[in-house]
Design a binder for these strands. Structure first.
Length: 288
DNA sequence: CGCATTCCCTGGGTGC
DNA sequence: TGCACCCAGGGAATGC
């Protein structure tokens, strides 16, 4: 599931290879993910255009073209955006959209579960895209400080900490894997609410988020399912550094107690009940 | 308004 | 081996 580090890795892998190259054709095999244009409009939007710049905001990709046009992409669960040579084999059979450049090179979008979203805009995407405009500060932004986080989180006094970390309008880019890792590093139980937090905890959340996401970027992201980020089937390596996520019933690296898995607001959640304190029972939903 | 639940999807896993 | 079923989850929509 692509989160901030995985989106960064995709961008690092395509950026230099696609910028300023002329798009001479667009193949749409499945338009399920194209949300605000017909196939014809989508093709016309890109035809004979060039990608001039790529930005990331949280888990969103923003591709800028000429004349203030922009393309906003979200990979959701299984989306992949990968640079290929024309004759490269498909990564999988779910190649929904391909942009073809004028030199036997291609940019291909894959998405097994069709969860991804694509939007095209003719002016500022940050103003036009309803979702993008709601995304909060990047964790690396200097403005993402104690006061910012405290103010944002204190609007949700009854929501558990994990759900707050997953809320893209607070800190941008954290998903299910890194939320578990961040809370473990902070020694905070995912089921607690902000009532349990003091200023040091808020600062720990900010600092550990930056540290963990940066380490994950260095490792090219985390591979837990089908994530690969290039045309050579390379995978991220941060799963080797995960301390709780996916480690159900394995001994905690800090205290040797067994890591527990539970479900919190529909998300698989891993934590150490010894390092991260007692579960706030009312917030845990029992399995069916 | 806040907060919880449902829905979209399909490959992989499980049980019979 | 085949078939029915369940599960994973980001974010929008829906419910209360």
């Amino acid at each position: 599931m692509p989160e901030l580090p995985e989106v960064t890795t995709f961008i690092n892998n395509i950026k230099d290879k696609i910028i300023n190259k002329k798009i001479i054709d667009i193949i749409i095999n499945n338009n399920k993910v194209i949300k605000n244009a017909t196939n014809k409009e989508f093709k016309e939007f890109f035809m004979n255009e060039k990608f001039l710049k790529i930005e990331r905001k949280g888990k969103y990709f923003i591709f800028f073209l000429s004349n203030n046009k922009s393309f906003v992409l979200h990979l959701r669960m299984e989306g992949k955006i990968i640079f290929h040579l024309k004759n490269d084999p498909l990564l999988n059979s779910h190649n929904l959209v391909t942009w073809i450049f004028d030199n036997n090179e291609e940019l291909r979008y894959y998405d097994t579960r069709l969860f991804g979203t694509m939007h095209i805009y003719y002016s500022d995407p940050y103003l036009n895209d309803k979702s993008l405009s709601k995304v909060g500060l990047e964790p690396f932004d200097d403005k993402c400080d104690l006061n910012y986080l405290k103010n944002k989180m204190q609007k949700h006094p009854k929501t558990n900490l994990k759900t707050l970390l997953l809320d893209q309008s607070i800190i941008a880019g954290i998903g299910n894997i890194y939320a578990d890792e961040i809370l473990f590093a902070c020694k905070l139980n995912p089921t607690w609410t902000i009532i349990k937090l003091n200023d040091e905890d808020y600062l720990n959340i900010i600092n550990n988020t930056k540290m963990i996401l940066n380490n994950a970027i260095k490792a090219n992201g985390t591979t837990v399912a089908s994530y690969s980020f290039d045309n050579h089937f390379n995978i991220g390596k941060f799963q080797e550094q995960l301390k709780v996520h996916t480690r159900n019933n394995l001994p905690c690296y800090e205290c040797k107690n067994l890591i527990k898995k539970t479900k919190l607001n529909g998300r698989g959640t891993y934590y150490c009940s010894s390092c991260q304190g007692e579960v706030y029972k009312k917030s845990i939903k029992k399995h069916k």
